[in-house]
Amino acid sequence: MSAANKRVRIRLTINGASRELEIEPRRLLVELLREDLDLTGTHIGCDTTYCGACTVLLNGRNVKSCTVFAVQADGGEITTVEGLEKDGKLDAVQEAFAECHGLQCGYCTPGFLMSTRALLSRVAHPTDAQIRKGIAGNTCRCTGYQNIFKAVRAAAGGAGK
């Protein structure tokens, strides 16, 4: 095995639980989540960091986990879509997307939820322009974004209109 493939040990906090893993240095964060930890809510939709289906929170910031090596996340705190629901209660962004029909096939949805969560953590009541910018790194092929705009507004405490 070449040096490049020598496995390394990393420690992460994922959805509140501490995990220690031994991985190849080339392992992407999204692969670690999906393959090693079975957190399959985080999806892969492209190979050029365009679509954002793999968006997760790393130390509170939204990142595209297809463009982060797992070793780069060593010592970090990660939240995936599976970590949004607390004590059987959906997060406000999950509730808003469901209520506003802000999804159809649901493949891009985890990424949108994480970007929205990050946006609302930064700006409690974003303007329409801030909403567009906040989800600019996420692609949805089903909804035409109309109900996603509504959902983000609703999650921010607006009426979703």
Binding site: T40, G41, F97, A98, H101, L103, Y107, P110
Partner: peptide, 21 residues
């Protein structure tokens, strides 16, 4: 009516083929 599909999909519990092992 609100879609029943949303319930699993917003939780990341959708079952897409690549999720199967």
């Amino acid at each position: 009516l609100r879609r029943r599909e949303e319930s699993r999909l917003v939780r990341g519990h959708g079952l897409f083929v690549d999720d199967y092992k």
